[in-house]
């Protein structure tokens, strides 16, 4: 299989804290990776480095065969990477539909100057995506009016509109009521399957991890402590002791 993303000796430390410690990592096309680990273990930092938001002190990152080390996020995104955030990054003064329209327009590269936004994107695609993340009824409302769970969905949908090869989701279910978490994940996975997007999500809920992931990587203190099939990783001693607290 082809490596979609690959890192070699990736390290980052700030002010004496080692946030990424010599990480060698690869993710292949078609995988569905769950990343687990305690807060501060370096999960988001690793995403930030891979997507160009932070620059590593050492090591390299390849995305889809291209060396993207030190590039700006916008350039890496153009190679086919989408990302959603732990704190949803939305255009809060725009409507839900407009948020998706801006995404769709951005995918085309050149933004038009005088053609109305709604007309410069594929309307059907927008409606379909809204449907997919169950936001159709709220399409004309302001993004700022959405509750947290729907903000998360919109955040993911904006990344999906880019038709990425890889979608990285940072804690898609955090801040969502626990009874809604499975619905949300099911919705997201349906959307990802439909477009055959490789995915990587950070998650704390073991239930969700074992249900939706094909592979689990466990982060401890800036390192990948365990990596493999869900059952295996979740059963490993280090993970049980350091992350799940069940040992």
């Amino acid at each position: 299989m082809d490596a979609l993303i690959r890192t070699e000796g990736l390290s980052l430390s700030f002010g004496g804290v080692v946030a990424a410690d010599n990480i060698d990592f690869r993710l292949d096309v078609g995988e569905r990776l769950a990343v687990i680990g305690q807060n501060g273990a370096g999960k988001t930092t690793f995403i930030n480095i891979c997507t160009g938001f932070l620059k590593p002190t050492r090591g390299r990152v390849w995305f889809d065969g291209k060396d993207v080390t030190g590039m700006e996020p916008r350039h890496i995104v153009r190679f086919g990477l989408g990302r959603s955030f732990q704190l949803p990054q939305l255009f809060l003064d725009h409507t839900v539909r407009q948020c998706l329209e801006i995404s769709a327009a951005a995918r085309q590269g050149r933004l038009s100057f005088f053609k109305p936004l709604a007309q410069s994107v594929n309307r059907r695609e927008i409606e379909h995506t809204l449907e997919l993340v169950s936001l159709r009824e709220r399409g004309s409302e302001l993004a700022s009016s959405l509750p947290e769970g729907q903000r998360k969905l919109l955040d993911v949908a904006m990344a999906l509109m880019l038709n990425p090869k890889l979608l990285i989701m940072d804690e898609p279910t955090s801040g969502v009521a626990s009874e809604d978490k499975h619905d949300l994940m099911a919705t997201l996975m349906r959307a990802l399957d439909e477009r055959k997007v490789t995915s990587w999500f950070v998650e704390h809920d073991v239930d969700i991890v074992s249900r939706y992931a094909t592979r689990v990587a466990a982060w401890i203190a800036g390192k990948v402590a365990a990596d493999g099939p869900p059952a295996e990783v979740l059963a490993s001693a280090a993970v049980r002791r350091e992350i799940l607290g069940t040992a």
Partner: peptide
């Protein structure tokens, strides 16, 4: 007014609310 409502103009308004998202849409 057409500019305000175009893709470029709406992205301009996006600078006010979220530049991080603009960047992660591949826009400068």
């Amino acid at each position: 007014q057409r500019y305000f409502q175009s893709a470029s103009g709406e992205a301009l308004a996006g600078i006010k609310t979220n530049e991080t998202r603009l960047e992660y849409l591949g826009l400068s």
